[in-house]
């Protein structure tokens, strides 16, 4: 399923940005998700959240609240991360 790949990409980005900003814990992640079609399927926000939650186990983003707003267009955007 392609959204596992996207979940991985987004999470890697979250962790990279967290490191850039010296965060020790990521508490909340804001994402905007467009209609991304991959291999005939539109990426589903719930699936994306589920995959990100699984992939984040053992990282500083474990248990982060993941907010996904559905938008127009065919792109996703990592809007912000919140942590300390």
């Amino acid at each position: 399923m392609h959204d596992l790949h996207e979940a991985d990409r987004i999470l890697k980005l979250v962790l990279e940005k967290a490191a850039d900003n010296n965060l020790r814990v990521v508490k909340e992640i804001d994402i905007r998700l467009g209609q991304i079609e991959e291999h005939g399927e539109i990426i589903n926000p719930d699936n994306l959240r589920f995959n990100m939650t699984n992939l984040s186990k053992g990282t500083i983003a474990e248990d982060a609240l993941i907010n996904i707003a559905v938008i127009e267009g065919d792109d996703w955007e990592l809007v912000s991360i919140d942590g300390f």
């Binding site: 990409r9 980005l13 965060l23 792109d75 955007e77 990592l78 809007v79 912000s80 919140d82 942590g83």
Partner: peptide, 13 residues
């Protein structure tokens, strides 16, 4: 601390 990122996927190309 909230960090604004606004990183668009297609930028990764």
């Amino acid at each position: 601390m909230k960090i604004q990122i606004n990183h668009l996927a297609k930028m990764e190309g």
